[in-house]
Nucleic acid binder design. Structure first.
Lengths: 188, 188
DNA sequence: CGGGAATAGTTGACACATCATCCACGTTCG
DNA sequence: CGAACGTGGATGATGTGTCAACTATTCCCG
C-alpha cells in the first residue's frame, strides 16, 4: 500500500504496484466504512448489535433453536472464548439462555429465547434493506459475481495458508463447505 | 415522531436475491478473516497493532512528523475520541508524544518519536508482503481493477448517503482524496 | 466589549475481542 | 482400575472502539 512512503525501506521488500495500491486503499476504506455503517444502523434501528445478530441467525437456523457452543464458534469462525463472553452478555439481556448438555457433561447449549427471536425478527428487514441499498443497488450483476469470486479466492488462500491455524482446524473435516455464516433468510 | 405504524413490514421487505446472498456471504466471511489475519500478523511480527500502524503511517507521511489530532481523525476516518484514546495509549508506549499548538490554544499535535519511526519501519515490509501474498497474488489484473471499482462504488454511496453524516462532514472539503486508512480490527 | 455558538480535544462508562489460564469432564491405554 | 491426555467451556486481564458528556478555547456578531 504505502510504498513511496518508505524510501528508506530495504530494497528487498516487494511493495505493491500502483494499481494494487489504489485497489487496496479503496477496499480498505470501503470495508471500514461499510462495517461501521452496518454496525451503526443495526444498533440504531434495533436493540441488538451485528454480533448479536450473527449469533441469533445461527440459532434461528436450527429447528429447535439450540446449538452447542463450539458449533456456534465454528459456524461463525469465532474463538470459543469470544462466543463464551458474548453469549454471557446476551444471556444477561435475555436474548438467549444456556442449557446443560445431558449427553456430555462438559458441554452446554445456547438456546434461543422468545425475546431473542422477536429481536432478530425485528432487526432483519432493516438490515437486509441496508445491505441491498448500500451494496447491491450500486453493483451490476457482473460486479456481484466478480465480488463473490474475488472474495472466494482470497478466503481460500486464507483458509489453506499454513499460517491460518484456526481456520484450517475449523474447516479441516470439510474443506469445501460453504459456511452459512449469515443464514439464508435474514442477514442478507 | 417515530413512525412505527407498520411494525410488521413483512410483505414489503425485499430480501436479497440468491446470487446476491452468495456474494454477500462470501464477502463478509472473507473480510472478517482477512482483517483478523492482518491484525494477527501485525501483532505477531511486530510490536505494534494495525491501528498503531495506521496512525504511524499518517505521521511518517508528513515532513515533520507532526499532525493535528482532528486532522489525523479526518485522514483515518476515525472518531475524535477514538484518536484521543489511541494516541494516549501510544504515548504511554513511547510511539508518539503530544505537543501543544501555539497558534490555537485548544489544539494539540501528535508527534512521531524516534521509537515510533523505527517501529513502523520494522513493521511495514512484512505487512506489505502479507497483503500481497494474501490478496494480490490471488487476483488477476482485471480482478484488481474490479475490486477497486466495486469498492469505490460502495464507498461513494456510503459517503454521499444522507445517513452518513460523519463521512460527509469529513470529506466535504476534499471528496476525492485517497486515504490509506489501513482498516481497523472491525472483524466479522 | 460581552455573550452565545462552534470547535478541539479529553474523559468515563460500557461493549467488545483476544490471550492465557483454568477447570470439569471424557477417552485412551497401561 | 487409574494416570495421562484431549476437549468443551468459563474466567480474568488487557487492549480496543463507541457514545455521551464535559472542559477549554476561539469565533461571531451585536
Amino acid at each position: 500500500m504505502m510504498c513511496q512512503l518508505f524510501p528508506y525501506a530495504e530494497p528487498v521488500t516487494r511493495w505493491l504496484e500502483p494499481e494494487q495500491q489504489r485497489a487496496w486503499r479503496a477496499y480498505v476504506r470501503m470495508q471500514g466504512e461499510l462495517n461501521a455503517h452496518l454496525n451503526r444502523q443495526m444498533s440504531v434501528d434495533s436493540e441488538i448489535s451485528m454480533a448479536d445478530f450473527a449469533v441469533l441467525v445461527q440459532l434461528t437456523d436450527t429447528p429447535d433453536g439450540r446449538v452447542r457452543v463450539l458449533e456456534l464458534a465454528r459456524f461463525l469462525h469465532w474463538e470459543k472464548s469470544r462466543i463464551s463472553h458474548h453469549v454471557a452478555r446476551m444471556e444477561k439481556r435475555g436474548l438467549v439462555r444456556r442449557e446443560n448438555c445431558s449427553s456430555d457433561g462438559r458441554g452446554s447449549f445456547v438456546v434461543l429465547t422468545d425475546q431473542g427471536r422477536s429481536a432478530i425478527e425485528a432487526a432483519a428487514p432493516a438490515h437486509a434493506e441496508t445491505v441491498r441499498a448500500l451494496v447491491f443497488d450500486q453493483l451490476t450483476d457482473a460486479e456481484v459475481e466478480s465480488l463473490r469470486e474475488i472474495s472466494e479466492k482470497i478466503f481460500t488462500r486464507l483458509a489453506t495458508g499454513e499460517c491460518a491455524a484456526v481456520i484450517a482446524r475449523c474447516d479441516a473435516d470439510d474443506p469445501m463447505e460453504v459456511v452459512p455464516e449469515e443464514s439464508g433468510r435474514s442477514e442478507a
